[in-house]
Amino acid sequence: MKLINVNHAVFFDVDDTLYDHLQPFREALEATLDTGPDFPYEPAYHRMRYYSDFLSVEAGGTPTHGQVLESMRTERFVRSLGEFGLTLSPEEAASVQAAYLDRQFDIRPFTGAFELIGKLQELGAIVGVITNGPPEHQWRKIRALGVDRLIPAELVFISGAVGFTKPDTRLFKLIEGKLGKSAEQCCYLGDSWRNDVVGAVGAGWRAVWFNHRGVRPETDPHLLHTPVSSYAELARLLLGESL
């Protein structure tokens, strides 16, 4: 899958794909619950992401505002941390959520992410972002990372603004139509099996699973996709060269 011409479009997820999403999660737990260095942060993070996706599906797509959004955000902490011996009241979960949000804008891109975006653009590929979430919240992350200085706003697709939530294939098809591209000309990179791999494969896109945490597929592992664990590996896959 070497992208070397103007016919290709490559889209990136944001959370835990362009930056380390575990960082604000860990810092929020340490600050509010005094969890200490031995707490299993990564497994707990995976369960939080699982419940975030699960509750989003129950709500009919990622909520963008109001009580439904707030309830989903706190409930995911109640359920996920409960599996690791932390029983939270709704008020405690809200405190964790507030601390988590505060830390989501003090973030840095993964090593090699921006270099890869630049190389793809130099080769003539269209490069954009597809992410789930409320528009204002996701835009704050995009600006905090500096992604807005690399990728134009018209190539940033946020579920809360578009009206479709990954893994809904209509989101991917809408983007195809806007770009005038076929599914075979489009590639999507993301960390979430459920949202990114299943969604992209369902739309007929090339799916690259950024499985840098070494987790197992949640559903059929035989879905046509390519796994990578680092940006160096991804650059070799997409460019045929190292950064």
Rank of each mutant, 00 (worst) to 15 (best):
R194G: 03
W205L: 03
D191G: 00
L189P: 09
G180M: 13
A161C: 07
R79A: 12
T219C: 08
V197F: 04
P109L: 07
L243A: 09
A144E: 00
D38F: 15
K173R: 15
A113L: 02
C186Q: 07
T87F: 04
D168G: 03
G240D: 07
K119M: 15
L189H: 09
T62S: 12
G128M: 12
T165A: 02
V14R: 08
P37S: 01
P221A: 01
A94C: 02
F157K: 08
P227V: 00
Q185W: 02
D16G: 14
G66Y: 03
V197K: 10
K141I: 03
T17R: 11
D148Y: 06
S71Y: 11
T111V: 15
Y51L: 01
D34S: 13
R149E: 13
F105K: 00
P37N: 01
C187M: 10
A98Y: 01
I158C: 02
F172C: 10
F54V: 10
G61Q: 02
I107K: 05
L18T: 15
G60D: 00
A94S: 13
G61R: 00
P90G: 05
I130L: 15
H137S: 10
T62K: 12
S56Q: 14
E154K: 08
E70P: 01
R206E: 12
R108Y: 08
L171N: 01
L234I: 08
H137P: 05
R26Y: 00
A94M: 02
L3N: 05
L123A: 15
R76W: 02
M72Y: 12
V215W: 09
L120G: 04
G66V: 00
